[in-house]
Design a binder for these strands. Sequence first.
DNA 1: CAGTGTGTGTTAAAATATTAACAAGTTTGT
DNA 2: ACAAACTTGTTAATATTTTAACACACACTG
Lengths: 225, 225
Amino acid sequence: MPREKKPQNPPVKDKKGSKTSKSLIKRLPVYLRILDNLIRRDVDIISSRVLSDETGFTAEQIRKDLATFGAFGTRGTGYNTSYLREKLLKITGLDKQIRIVVVGSGHLGKALTRYNILKNPYVEIAGIFDANPDELDNEILGIKVQPMEDLPLLIKEQGIKVSMITVPAEVAQEVVDLLVENGITAILNFAPTKLRAPANVHIHNADLTIELQSLIYYSLEREKE
Amino acid sequence: MPREKKPQNPPVKDKKGSKTSKSLIKRLPVYLRILDNLIRRDVDIISSRVLSDETGFTAEQIRKDLATFGAFGTRGTGYNTSYLREKLLKITGLDKQIRIVVVGSGHLGKALTRYNILKNPYVEIAGIFDANPDELDNEILGIKVQPMEDLPLLIKEQGIKVSMITVPAEVAQEVVDLLVENGITAILNFAPTKLRAPANVHIHNADLTIELQSLIYYSLEREKE
DNA sequence: CAGTGTGTGTTAAAATATTAACAAGTTTGT
DNA sequence: ACAAACTTGTTAATATTTTAACACACACTG
Ligand SMILES: NC(=O)c1ccc[n+]([C@@H]2O[C@H](COP(=O)([O-])OP(=O)(O)OC[C@H]3O[C@@H](n4cnc5c(N)ncnc54)[C@H](O)[C@@H]3O)[C@@H](O)[C@H]2O)c1
Ligand SMILES: NC(=O)c1ccc[n+]([C@@H]2O[C@H](COP(=O)([O-])OP(=O)(O)OC[C@H]3O[C@@H](n4cnc5c(N)ncnc54)[C@H](O)[C@@H]3O)[C@@H](O)[C@H]2O)c1
């Protein structure tokens, strides 16, 4: 029994000083995903309580997170799903599709490229690159793997700022250097190695090995009990 | 309509072990990896300062982390790489190879299975499973994809406690239920969905979409400057 | 074998993040 | 129109994590 409700239109931009913590920013895409699901199910209004059930975060935390950026809800009622989604899209920068490049068309690079083309409407794969000539024949859902030589031009021509790198750890640093040199400012790194870059370049590490190994720690702790 | 007063309890609250924080545990595999590299290069002694350079964590944090579990270093000198490695292996539980199963032999499942067989000496892939009959012909580095029907027996016979799941989000919960039912206590979930499990089961989410989307937030912040 | 340099381990302080409490709006029912 | 029922947004309290400081132990030197 969803009801239609539109809150007033308050100042949309950031609140005061940007006290946006890293962990908060990582929760925003989760909210966004839940909202997408809710909207698909024609739910118009959602309370922080129910949002808590869906996300696993506490209702207090959700309210606090959202309040960081403005007053998006209606007291006594909840949040309008479409309105909140729009706001979150603006905040995260996902309101316009972002073009990214993938470097390394190995197993992981292919899986990620494929996945993002099919399932992630918020990004567009502008290109995938590899140093191995044998890879250049391959095509992933219509996108041809290109040689590294073509990377600088494409990045600069299209003004691309974001890249995923799925190359062996040994060459990851040189790939980063190349990317940074050509204007990339944000890198999602899957290689299990520490990368160096200028302070204005953001590097996030998606270290799947760490995830698995730390999980094992917990699996053993549990057994003791 | 009756209403509950208390909100849902938050995901996981460690009652006793507040000593070892989640973030600390995630740093341990990083230390371990660096130590492996150092030992391979015949480095015998390492200071927290140099370890800081290699890992990106501060030297203070490294010393504090290690001191949580004991006094592994020598004052005035540093840490013996082999000795520290042994200690960390014991602490993380990686001293004996852990057998795990993979559920979902799609693109990501195949990449992960392959990677762990080739590059991760700390785990052994005991089996990979899929519900799609077409997948059953496939073989990943000698490991044949098995039907879901064979999963319970293998888990129970081999006493397997850890699993990675790489199935579509829509079926992830039912897979978790099946795994838990058969004795799995730790799950690394790659599906972008919140999973429910008994409190004694550890679920880690490796949400690659979140990583990419939160990175985009930062890439845009930078541009403003 | 004292003296000095070095880097750990521990304790204290600061910074962050989470949790809780509640006042302030909003809707609904009468 | 008013009160009851809700739920947000904000402020305060608590917990956790990180940073800093420094005393202490060991090694090396002359
Ligand atoms: N596959 C996984 O599940 C997994 C898990 C954890 C970590 N990783 C990490 O992700 C990265 C990729 O893994 P993968 O399994 O896809 O490896 P892969 O060997 O299948 O692919 C690596 C690709 O990088 C290309 N490459 C090599 N040098 C290059 C260079 N200088 N410039 C551009 N491309 C280059 C290779 O040609 C190859 O296609 C590795 O660092 C790996 O450690 C992968
Ligand atoms: N591939 C990526 O790069 C990527 C990135 C982010 C998230 N993910 C997530 O990881 C998961 C797997 O992604 P993928 O790209 O490998 O998908 P995929 O479609 O290639 O593979 C999914 C596999 O799961 C199997 N499966 C379906 N239902 C099953 C069931 N009930 N029991 C057992 N197996 C079942 C399918 O047969 C298929 O082989 C998805 O949830 C996806 O959202 C993937």
